[in-house]
């Protein structure tokens, strides 16, 4: 009874105090640094999606390749946000360094730059757009309705995967796919040379 009376007498300050405490807890749950990181990751995602759209829509294929390079760099940033440091480095080295260089070489060897009247998109553009939007809505609905078994916070606080762990996995349980990959790579590279070289007889 006395507690109730004291409660009634002190109602305005209690409410005030509760409000500020609630505000403090939400503030402590999200410190400013974490908020900045979160906004940074979302900004990175936005830049990636915009760059991907540009790389599909640019008429000039060289500009499209540059936009795709930006997207690949942004995806390396996403890997960093997911604590996959080695994969981010691999992304920059192989995709931006090697694959995009190859693509730009191929564009310069084959593109008819002077021919601006050349159609870049075929006749099924609108059908592809409609199908893509349908697929996207289906995927988003599926992602939102599926209960993903997300690990608890204690397990998520574990440190990032190190290069040592990756190397031990590659030479331990995954040694057979690793060897297969090396054979595939050498076969593909030799095949590329054989296909692309000039015929000596001709």
């Amino acid at each position: 009874m006395r507690i109730a009376v004291s409660d009634a007498s002190f109602t305005p300050p209690r409410v005030q105090g509760r409000n500020t405490r609630k505000g403090l807890t939400t503030l402590s749950m999200m410190p400013p640094l974490e908020f900045i990181i979160k906004m940074g990751i979302y900004a990175l995602m936005t830049v990636c999606v915009a760059g991907a759209l540009l790389s599909v829509l640019f008429r000039n294929l060289f500009h499209a390749a540059l936009a795709l390079t930006g997207v690949l760099l942004g995806i390396a940033g996403i890997y960093l946000a997911l604590h996959a440091d080695f994969l981010a480095m691999i992304q920059v080295l192989i995709y931006v360094g090697a694959v995009m260089t190859l693509v730009i070489f191929a564009i310069m060897l084959t593109e008819r730059f002077g021919d601006a009247s050349l159609r870049q998109f075929n006749h099924q553009s609108w059908a592809a757009l409609g199908g893509g939007i349908l697929l996207l809505t289906f995927l988003v609905r599926m992602i939102q309705t599926t209960p993903w078994p997300v690990k608890n916070q204690a397990a998520l606080a574990s440190p990032a995967v190190t290069v040592v762990q990756l190397g031990e996995a590659l030479l331990g349980p995954y040694v057979f796919p690793f060897e297969i990959i090396s054979v595939i790579l050498i076969a593909a590279l030799i095949g590329a040379i054989v296909v692309a070289r000039k015929d000596l007889e001709a």
Binding site: V49, A52, V56, L135, L139
Partner: peptide, 15 residues
Amino acid sequence: AVLFVIGLCGTLVRR
């Protein structure tokens, strides 16, 4: 998923 669908549309549309 958004990136995948953009890539799929590009694959279907480009000449």
